[in-house]
């Protein structure tokens, strides 16, 4: 498949490239250049540049959106909301029938759901609340879903919770993790997060019940706070690292977040 990746040199991008590069033809785009170890095609592009995204999408079979900026109000809406508008218009214009969107779990199950005890699931009505990151991603998702339903595009949305490097349990731009202290039951390794995108790219259309399907990407937990059964049953994702694997592992030092990726 020819795949356009938006926001491909951020936190998740290197792991998505690792999962896809041997089977698919990738065009990686981002406002930041990839490191030298990345050998594939790259285009410098901001996701809110609608004409740039439309041009880059020509001839593609699939678009993956990994872009995110969450600290500045303008940038957050430019990337997470308007970026999705660019992406979905590109899909419409070039008749691209598969779009993979990614985001945080709380763009759907935000603050007002926090007190719920269990069985939060991806079929619930979204309630992101007013946190900047959550609401800007949610509005982007609303645009993407409308386009998917109206123009018959398969939109697969993957929602993540807590991502850590499988060597040393770190996540970029945060302090070093302390084994057993900084983990939540939904901790997922970056390498497994990339695999989830591969599952979404390769899933047979007949398994999808509607044009817009959302999946929680986190390992199965006994208390079932986030119900990921749909992810296991339909997406076919099986994480290599469960909480138990990560909890009992021996920490292996990594030089940076992208070690063992690309």
């Amino acid at each position: 498949m020819k795949i356009l990746i938006l926001g491909g040199t951020g936190m998740l991008g290197p792991w998505v490239v690792k999962a896809l590069k041997n089977k698919h033809q990738l065009l990686l785009t981002d406002i930041n250049e990839p490191p030298k170890k990345y050998q594939g095609d790259f285009l410098k592009l901001s996701v809110d540049d609608i004409n740039g995204v439309i041009n880059a999408a020509e001839g593609m079979d699939c678009i993956i959106n990994l872009s995110v900026l969450r600290h500045d109000r303008k940038l957050a809406f430019d990337v997470s909301t308007k970026g999705n508008y660019s992406m979905m218009n590109a899909a419409k214009i070039h008749n691209i029938k598969r779009v993979i969107n990614t985001g945080p779990h709380f763009q759907m199950v935000g603050q007002s759901y926090e007190e719920w005890d269990f069985n939060l699931n991806p079929e619930m009505p979204p309630q992101p609340g007013t946190r900047l990151y959550a609401i800007s991603k949610f509005l982007g998702q609303e645009i993407a879903k409308r386009y998917a339903d109206y123009f018959g595009i398969n939109l697969i949305t993957l929602l993540y919770y807590n991502m850590r490097h499988h060597y040393d349990l770190t996540t970029p731009n945060e302090e070093k993790a302390v084994l057993h202290n900084d983990m939540v039951p939904f901790t997922t390794s970056w390498i497994d997060c990339g695999e989830a995108v591969r599952c979404a790219v390769e899933i047979d259309k007949s398994k999808l019940q509607s044009n817009s399907e959302t999946f929680f990407i986190s390992p199965m937990t006994p208390h079932n706070k986030f119900n990921s059964s749909k992810t296991f049953d339909i997406l076919g994702w099986r994480p290599k690292y469960s909480l138990e694997n990560l909890w009992t592992k021996k920490i292996k030092k990594s030089n940076n977040h992208i070690e063992n990726s690309y």
Binding site: D48, K74, F77, D78, T81, K82, Y85, L132, S136, I143
Partner: peptide
């Protein structure tokens, strides 16, 4: 254009309500 329209109804609306 439509990008400015979306910006008003999302970001600027958010800023105003905030």
């Amino acid at each position: 254009d439509e990008m400015e329209l979306i910006d008003y109804h999302t970001r600027i609306t958010y800023d105003l309500l905030f």
